[in-house]
Design a protein around this nucleic acid. Structure first.
Lengths: 199, 199
DNA sequence: GTCTATAGAACGATAGAC
DNA sequence: GTCTATCGTTCTATAGAC
């Protein structure tokens, strides 16, 4: 079920308890308005503190984004571990699908940030940290094999997970149903027959 | 093949020829950095003119975004017309898939803006103009029928089209191959058997 | 851990000359 | 159709008191 919160090896360290609230508030605003569309002022206002208080927790806005995304990077690594442990192409694809869906459902906003926000792409790139996702892709569908159509389907699926997650139309669908539907969609898309071993 | 450029009924009017270059430059920058991440200064610099020159063409940045998106709105309407003309659920789904893929390939950057950029969502909403996409969705999968799993797959597919389009890994895939692969993926995802009549 | 105050830059937008 | 110059605002970020 992808429960582990990994603090990850990105060099971003938590400090106190107020930071958790900062993450929550910032993440929610980032998800709605995007990173560039959210000012530190807006975050501070929403928290009911002054803007300067922010700088106790992080030294810059970019740092905040990295701090928010750090757990996701760790979780992505965990999915990669589990995928690597599987043998056979079908088993690996299935592990990838299930892992990614759980990640998208557990950490929707972070997931949407990472894959959807151009500002985040810039920040990750600037810190040479965009690797996690690229590595996972490479593991499950090596570029050397040149299987373009699988790679396209993979990218389509991962990106497609952005929408069902944040769409207001789907707010009333319960989590387990959504999860099964998305996993089903992934298997259909990637021609994975059934859960190869168990779940 | 979705050739028609419809100026659309959005109330945004072209003026001269310099506007075409403005659209090109702005669109390219918007696609990379997002709307909020692209300043009018950056656009002006890229065009080799002053920032003030921009205001001859549009009265605001929001207006520029609407102007850039107007043709897409028209094309979306055309897809809707063609979809409406089809009879039967399978035929409509197929028309939707093919139409959307062509739109995504023809107008990748506009497509990515509309579906991916939170700033654009805000602008469209502020002008009560987000309808085109919602209407198309409603036509092909009415909310009243309550077929959640099809709706989820539909959203996943549309959003998923964002990525194969802009991913640098896929730059060497020729357009026709990409088109066929994406259409195939859509049919698999939405369980559409074959091209119901012709193409 | 939070505050006030402010520096300094960048932003969107306007005025008016050419 | 483009320019220079500038207005008013907002932004990130810092300094220093509590």
């Amino acid at each position: 079920m992808t429960g582990e919160i990994v603090t990850a090896g990105t060099g971003v360290r938590p400090r106190g308890a107020g930071r958790a609230q900062l993450h929550d508030v910032a993440l929610r605003l980032f998800a709605v308005h995007g990173v560039e569309g959210t000012s530190l002022q807006a975050i501070a206002d929403e928290m009911g503190v002054s803007k300067a208080a922010f700088y106790y927790h992080y030294k810059s806005k970019d740092d905040l984004v990295l701090g928010i995304l750090a757990p996701l990077t760790g979780q992505l690594g965990a999915v990669m571990e589990r995928t690597r442990a599987r043998r056979g192409r079908q088993a690996r694809l299935d592990e990838f699908i299930v892992g990614l869906v759980d990640l998208a459902l557990d950490s929707h906003d972070q997931f949407a940030m990472m894959l959807g926000d151009p500002a985040v792409a810039r920040i990750l790139h600037a810190h040479a940290l965009s690797q996690g996702w690229a590595d996972l892709l490479e593991l499950v569908c090596p570029a050397s094999e040149g299987d373009r159509s699988t790679r396209i389907a993979l990218l389509l699926f991962a990106t497609g997970l952005l929408c069902p997650i944040r769409d207001p139309d789907l707010a009333d669908v319960d989590r387990e149903t959504l999860r099964e539907t998305l996993i089903d969609a992934g298997r259909r898309l990637l021609r994975v027959r059934r859960p190869p071993t168990a779940e």
